[in-house]
């Protein structure tokens, strides 16, 4: 976990020099609600819970951290 933190900080430190290849004015499609991984968090969490309660697998289902950079 410590190495992950270091990697995150390192990437963050150099990130400001990267030019975005999708300009803010080109993100109208990405900003559309139909492009969200989960429009309704309560519903998504519930159906994930339905599966997790009945399957051996668990984890990595949430798409938190996903960004569209629309704002």
């Amino acid at each position: 976990m410590r190495s992950v933190c270091f990697l995150l900080l390192a990437v963050s430190a150099c990130g400001c020099d990267v030019k975005p290849w999708v300009k803010p004015y080109e993100r109208s499609h990405l900003a559309d609600p139909i492009m969200q991984f989960s429009r309704d968090p309560v519903s998504t969490a519930y159906i994930n819970h339905v599966y997790e309660a009945r399957e051996g697998a668990r984890g990595a289902e949430g798409s938190q951290g996903g960004g569209c950079g629309c704002n």
Binding site: V42, N48, H49, R58, G62, Q64, C68
Partner: peptide, 27 residues
């Protein structure tokens, strides 16, 4: 009862509810 694994996973349900909204960057 519900299996331990199933019940123990329940708390993660709430965390998904609370964390999932981060689909829009830094807002």
């Amino acid at each position: 009862k519900w299996g331990a694994k199933r019940r123990l996973s329940i708390a993660l349900l709430a965390l998904q509810v609370l964390l999932t909204p981060f689909l829009v960057a830094a807002v």
